[in-house]
Design a protein around this nucleic acid. Structure first.
Length: 912
RNA sequence: GCGGGUGUGGUGAAAUUGGUAGACACGCUAGACUUAGGAUCUAGUGCCUAACAGCUUGAAGGUUCGAGUCCUUUCACCCGCACCA
């Protein structure tokens, strides 16, 4: 009997499907375990070998937990709304719903061939009305809630309204009495409430991407261009939906400490949230009844402040600019506004600005400080205004030098020609009551003083902005909300608000989305529907909850279900979602928790980032201007240009020149300059992508070697979180391993497994394997577990062990890694039930114990020879024997022993 | 500039957490069995050396009986953020 992996894998995949083997129940006496993958966006190009890496890891872990007696939820679904599907639709004229459906079908086929233990009964697709009904419902909850700073959580907006009706409201920015409130019109009231709702509509500077015809969230803009497509992004004032994630900044930040996320990921989130502690200081404007708020982390340097700088977009600029400076200021604003985000980021070293002509009064010295505008001050950060302290800030110093502004030196023993002083340990001077103090002591003193003067207070600032939640696109969830001419809002009564059909995807009037072309659909009983759609991250912000209760028609997820499954125990996916998806889903979880819909306020206990599998590209070198290709080793002798060729045309680095000639018409007549009769390609590690002809399809690997080999090989490649280039060559070793395993059961056509009693050696290797595999799987070091399986099978082969008592537990362990072959072998061992229902073998450490231990004997740390001792021998007795041994005296020569160190069970070191 | 991470054979990588560095594989070399092999098996394979010896975890110091592992300095690469006040 040969190991016919194709027949075996087909047979069991079908069997599992027909018998619903992987169906999971919400009712069980077993402890639960929730193992989740970041679900894929089904793109048109299908899966490549990099995609399943994380899926395989989580699948092994899920199967392992099942063997360990857990009720394991391990679902899969599809993140189906989004820009690429719509753009593809525009190009091809097909409806995005159709192409998405096709892509999902393809993905599922590919996934099914790899033998994952997903419960497909729980599959979810975010673009289906039965799903997005609840995405819309959660939006309604966000719209109907506000963040209560007192209780530090979200609460129903009705409570806020009650409080307004009873007590009015007082804050720095807003103040009204109960009588005022009750006298306001509904529209006026709504306008105020919009300042509190967790989902709100507001005019704001947004990232507008003309190329994609939509606004983008901050995390979708990379270096001033869109993450998708690389189109330029500009700042634009638009009315948009936002999520008030800033209200949760502190909770999102502090909870990180208790989460098992990779350090780098936590750092990214901390960085994104960007907490900084400092002070808000207000400067009165000379001659106006206005003041400018600045934010600073260094209130101690207040005496070094010699001018103020506002962002060009700052509200007060127009008001305070003097007549003679008006033209200069307007010119400067025009110039900066025109620059794209990308240009602005490109020349951050250039100093530019303009003087408003106005002066502010220093709150402590009462000096007059000139007020400038400059684009190095950002409207989106802090208050959009700074007090410039040239002695303490590099940029302020550059600016002061450029425009000949005063530079008070407030640091002792510091030479300002060498640059600004940013050292917090520096000692202050020329700073009145702060003289001779450092940052640590003076910061609080400065704040106290300012507070006395009513000119400032301590302030914590967060960099994170509220998240844009509108997209002017078609292929997304419609907002379940309507508005009328009075500026009132109303949530849709019936959910879902289904996405209407359109026949074109062009933007509607006034920069609105395609839905704004549907004038009939937009109107409903005197109300107008929202025509924006939700962004890609809406559906993925809560999908992990829907898997718990996927068909519930009355709730997004029943409380029983979410109480039972609770948090995701392990969440596996790419690090690219560190600040986008992961933060948004943490926010939604906290809101749903605050509103009492779920009992936990963090979605994922542990996150694991799998590395990227890169492509291993092949290059040929064309002699410039000729149809001649030179082998890589000889390319220096010619002037060449590299061209990517399809990896499938190469065996290792050797190009199949015949295949190459038929690959593309223009290569038909190619000539080759060979080395040793072969054409050797160049290679390059880069992103796996169709464009670079380096994509390896898992389907091909599965056809050639089988899913079990593929799964184990991906794990064997190295630590799961590392990125590495794909190399198909090494797969042979894993395949050989499975064939060797097979031969422990079959010799030619004979089934050779016996019921003999195992020997000590056999039990030892088995239990070593139990130990290593258990440890490796639990710590996600799957590569070491695979190694141990190989060691075990090699060892059993050497011992000619064909004993059921050894092989049965071995294949139970292996079933998480290679489910098909082990299910087959389990059956040939005479079992009727599935191997999946077995338990992970229990480690008995007694079998690991050795009677005798081989001690390396080292002299000054260098191993010279070995000696064997009884495992129970005491260190003293060992030392005595070693000292007396002739090999020792030989080594010593005329030197003396200073000390002998015996590490029990490990080694002996003799200090000479 | 700030933050996080990684440097070990020709290659992917192990290393019980301070105890024989290079397990397990790929590749390579030789051999066996084969009509054949991209099948299977056996042996070898860090470097230097004929051998003994010696050297070896990016580099340099240090702690220690003992360091890939801990400390200091430094170099290189990868990732994230970046005019953040």
């Amino acid at each position: 009997m040969q190991y016919d992996f194709r027949a075996i894998e087909n047979k069991w995949q079908q069997h599992w499907k027909e018998n619903n083997t992987y169906a999971v129940s919400n009712k069980s006496d077993k402890p639960k375990c929730y193992v989740l993958d970041m679900f894929p966006y089904p793109s048109g190009s299908g899966l490549h070998v990099g995609h399943p890496l994380g899926y395989i890891a989580s699948d092994i872990y899920a199967r392992y937990k099942r063997l360990k007696g857990f009720n394991v939820l391990h679902p899969m679904g599809f993140d189906a709304f989004g820009l690429p599907a719509e753009q593809y639709a525009i190009e091809t004229g097909q409806h995005p719903a159709d192409t998405t459906k096709q892509n999902i079908k393809r993905y599922k086929e590919q996934l099914e061939k790899i033998g994952f233990c997903y419960d497909w009964n729980r599959e979810i697709i975010t673009a289906e009305p039965s799903y997005y009904k609840w995405t819309q419902w959660i939006f309604s909850q966000l719209f109907s809630a506000y963040f209560n700073k007192e209780s530090n959580k979200a609460e129903p907006i009705e409570q806020l309204i009650l409080s307004f009706e009873k007590n009015g409201y007082t804050s720095e920015a807003l103040c009204f009495s109960a009588t005022d409130w009750n006298a306001y019109s509904t529209a006026e009231q709504e306008k105020i409430l919009m300042g509190f709702r967790l989902a709100y509509r507001a005019e704001s500077q947004v990232n507008w991407c003309e190329g994609l015809g939509t606004v983008l969230a901050n995390d979708e803009v990379i270096n001033g261009v869109s993450e998708r497509g690389g189109h330029p992004v500009e700042r634009k004032l638009m009315s948009q939906w936002f999520l008030r994630i800033s209200a949760y900044a502190e909770r999102l930040l502090s909870a990180l400490d208790h989460l098992e996320y990779p350090d780098s990921l936590k750092e990214m989130q901390r960085n994104w949230i960007g907490k900084s502690v400092g002070a808000k200081i207000n400067f009165k404007i000379d001659g106006y009844n206005e003041h400018i708020d600045v934010f600073t982390t260094r209130p101690d340097t207040i005496f070094g402040s010699s001018f103020l700088v506002l962002a060009p977009e700052h509200d007060l600029v127009a008001q305070i600019t003097t007549a003679e400076q008006k033209e200069t200021i307007e010119q400067y604003i025009n110039k900066t506004a025109k620059r794209s985000e990308r240009d602005r980021l490109a020349d951050t070293k250039v100093v530019s600005g303009a003087f408003t002509g106005a002066y502010a009064i220093h709150p402590l010295t009462k000096n007059k400080l000139p007020i400038w505008i400059a684009d190095y001050v950002l409207i989106n950060y802090g208050t959009g205004a700074i007090m410039a302290v040239p002695a303490g800030d590099e940029r302020d110093l550059r600016f002061a030098n450029e425009y000949n502004l005063e530079i008070p030196n407030i640091f002792k023993n510091h030479d300002l020609s060498a640059g600004a002083c940013t050292d917090k340990k520096a000692v202050l001077q020329n700073s009145d009551f702060l003289n001779d103090k450092t940052f640590e002591e003076s910061s609080c003193l400065a704040i106290e003083k300012l507070q006395e003067q009513n000119a400032g207070q301590e302030k914590i600032n967060y960099r994170m902005r509220d998240a844009g939640f509108s997209r002017q696109r078609y292929w997304g969830e419609p907002f379940p909300i309507l508005t009328n001419n009075n500026g009132e809002y109303k949530l849709a009564a019936d959910l879902p608000v289904t996405l209407p059909a359109v026949d074109k995807y062009e933007n509607g009037p006034e920069g609105k989305g395609p839905l704004a072309n549907l004038t009939d659909w937009m109107q409903l009983d005197g109300w107008t529907r929202e025509t924006d759609t939700m962004p890609g991250y809406a559906g993925s912000s809560w999908y992990y909850l829907r898997y718990m209760d996927p068909t519930n028609e009355d709730a997004f997820c029943s409380k029983e279900a979410s109480d039972y499954w609770n948090q995701v125990d392990v969440y596996v996916g790419g690090a690219e979602h560190a600040v986008g998806h992961l933060l948004y889903s943490r926010l939604w979880c906290k809101v749903l928790h605050d509103l009492d819909y779920i009992s936990f306020d963090e979605p994922y206990k542990k996150v694991l980032n799998q590395g990227m599998i890169q492509g291993n590209s092949r290059l040929v070198y064309r002699v410039v201007g000729e149809n001649k290709f030179v082998s890589a080793g000889l390319k220096e002798e010619h002037q060449t240009e590299p061209i990517h060729v399809d990896v499938s045309m190469c065996d290792g680095l050797v190009l199949d020149t015949t295949a190459f000639k038929t690959w593309r018409k223009d290569f038909e007549e190619s000539e080759f300059i060979l080395e040793d009769g072969k054409y050797i390609c160049g290679q390059q590690t880069e992103k796996m992508s169709k464009r670079l002809y380096n994509v390896v399809n898992p389907d091909d690997i599965v056809i050639d070697y089988g899913a079990d080999t593929f799964r184990m090989y991906e794990m064997f490649l190295g630590p799961i979180e590392d990125s590495k280039p794909w190399d198909t060559k090494g797969i042979e070793g894993v395949h050989r391993f499975l064939k060797k395993l097979w031969r422990l059961f079959y010799h030619e056509d004979n089934f050779i497994v016996t019921n003999d009693v195992p020997t000590k050696d056999e039990l030892k290797v088995l239990h070593q394997t139990i130990q290593k595999v258990q440890q490796g799987t639990e710590t996600f070091s799957f590569n070491t577990a695979v190694s141990q399986f190989m060691i075990c099978v090699n060892e059993l082969g050497k011992l000619s062990c064909n004993k059921k008592e050894i092989l049965a537990p071995l294949i139970i362990m292996l079933s998480s890694y290679a489910p098909h072959i082990t299910e087959e072998l389990w059956k040939v061992l005479g079992n009727k039930s599935s191997i999946l229902d077995e338990s992970f073998p229990v480690l008995n450490e007694d079998y690991l114990k050795e009677d005798e231990i081989n001690y390396p004997v080292a002299f000054n740390g260098k191993v010279k020879f070995q000696m064997t001792f009884n495992a129970e021998a005491s260190p003293q007795s060992i030392e005595d024997v070693v000292r007396a041994d002739t090999k020792t005296t030989e080594q010593l020569g005329d030197k003396n022993i200073k000390k002998v160190i015996v590490v029990k069970g490990r080694m002996i070191n003799i200090v000479v």
